[in-house]
Each structure stands twice: as structure tokens, then as C-alpha cells.
Design a protein around this nucleic acid. Sequence first.
DNA 1: ATAAGTTTTTCACTTTAAGTGAAAATATGT
DNA 2: ACATATTTTCACTTAAAGTGAAAAACTTAT
Lengths: 102, 102
Amino acid sequence: MFSDRDKSYPIELVAEFLGVNSRTLYYYERFSLVVPVRRGRKRYYSKEDISWLEYVREMMYDQGMNLRSIIVLIKRRDDVILTKCPEDVVNSFKNYLMRMED
Amino acid sequence: MFSDRDKSYPIELVAEFLGVNSRTLYYYERFSLVVPVRRGRKRYYSKEDISWLEYVREMMYDQGMNLRSIIVLIKRRDDVILTKCPEDVVNSFKNYLMRMED
DNA sequence: ATAAGTTTTTCACTTTAAGTGAAAATATGT
DNA sequence: ACATATTTTCACTTAAAGTGAAAAACTTAT
């Protein structure tokens, strides 16, 4: 019947829901970070798109990641990243995170 | 006997080898992205540190990732990231990558 | 056909992280 | 104490992310 992949939400509604400028969604589209469907010239997004974008925003704003990194993650989706990271970096990094909790 | 984890290379040598300013290594250290050992007040790095830093530089310069993202990756090392990414984003993103190969 | 209204696109500007130069501070060896 | 080397601090530069405003393109009603 209905699916989270149904593209039925117009850009303004999605932008408002996410609390971003609709220009930001156009901007993301340039990198294929989200792919709305076009009916006529209008863009429509799915629920899945919306939750993906929420996740992207969280990665960017809560974590401070940049767009490029998310793009790299998509590209390397199935790869193992960071195998080269030394243990003492991981340990010391945990301390860094502790310090930052202030 | 000797190990890639032996911290024996001074900062200037490492910086020169990597082609970066030694200030950059101090900068990375603030985020625990690399953890030299201190003998007296001098810093010493291991071969493992150096290849880790090479990898970090590659992620940043070849891929355009930022420091924060690498930090997030360390933090989430064992997590599955990007499970929320919709398939059509992955597909469309592949086209985007193709377009960029010019 | 054209006027009115929407959506999209473009241009230029703002903000922030990453990086660096230079000077000041700190430590080491003689 | 002095000379030298390393570290730390401050202020500046550069580039990506995001946005405001205007122009362009398209749609629809009269």
C-alpha cells in the first residue's frame, strides 16, 4: 500500500520540517546526497529521504562532520575504515572525549 | 626487537616526511588524533603514527574529509554507520561520482 | 496572450574549521 | 647565566557550507 519510499512531500514542507532553508536541499542535491523525484518541475521527497536527511543533519551539526565525509561514507559503505588507527590514539581519544564533556 | 610502535621519530622529521608544518601535528594532538610520547619535553612518533597520519592526510586531502569526521569515525569504529542511507541515494551518488571523474 | 504566482537557479555574501607565520614562553645543556 | 631548541599562543588566511535576494523559468487562470 503505502511505503516510506513514496516520494510525496514537496520541498518547502521538508525544509520546514527539518528546519533548514530549501536552498540547502538544492545544495545537497548537487552531491546526490538526497534524490527527490520530479513531477513536472516540482521536487518530491519520501519519508525515507526525510529520515536520511535528519541523520545527515545530526552527523553535521551534532558531530561536526562535513558533507564530503558523508559522501566518502556512502562511497565506502561496505569497506572497513580506520583499520590503521593505532590503539593509543583510540585510548587517548577516549580521554579527549571525556575532556570535551564540559 | 624493533616494532612499528616504537616512538622514536622527532616531530620535525615526521612533519618533513609528511610534508606538513609541525604546527599541524601539534594541532592534531589537541584532538588526540595522534599521540606522540614525550621524553623530556620533546615529542617522538612511531612508524605506526606516521602511517596513520599519512592515512589521515589522504582522507582529508584526497577525499575532502574534515578532522571532526575522522574523530567521529574513531568514536564509532565498531558501529555500523549509514544504514539509513536510501538505496536511490547510493545509486544516484554513483552517477554523481562518475560525473566528477572529469 | 498575458498577468500573477510558484519553483528553481544564479550570484554574491557570511560564517566557521583547518592550517600557518611569527613572536613569546619554556626548558635544556654548557 | 647564556645560547639553543622546542613548545605555546595569537592573529591571520583559506575554503567549504549555507543563505538572502534577485533573476529566470515554468504553470495556471482569466
